[in-house]
Amino acid sequence: MIEESEQQPEDLEAALDRIARTDAIGVTLRKAEEYAAKAREALALFPECEIRSLLIETASYSASRER
């Protein structure tokens, strides 16, 4: 239906239902956490300091934010 661009109003609900049933959002969020972990690891060679800690926290935020 996407390829034909002929969606009906009920198609959106069907698509969202399919996303929920297949845990597509969970898969995406777990992938995001993998990237966030790589971001945190990249800062390992910097000496410990406040701004490094804040950047590490920002990486955690990027994968856990709600808006």
Binding site: L16, I19, I25, T28, L29, K31, A32, E33, Y35, A36, K38, A39, A42, L43, L45, F46, L55, T58, A59, S62, A63, S64, R65, E66, R67
Partner: peptide, 22 residues
């Protein structure tokens, strides 16, 4: 290291952005 940090942060950020849409 900072380039890699930013790239991975951006990937995480956009993945969450897309997930939040739904």
């Amino acid at each position: 290291a900072l380039r890699v940090y930013g790239a991975n942060l951006g990937m995480a950020f956009q993945l969450v952005d897309d997930a939040l849409d739904y």
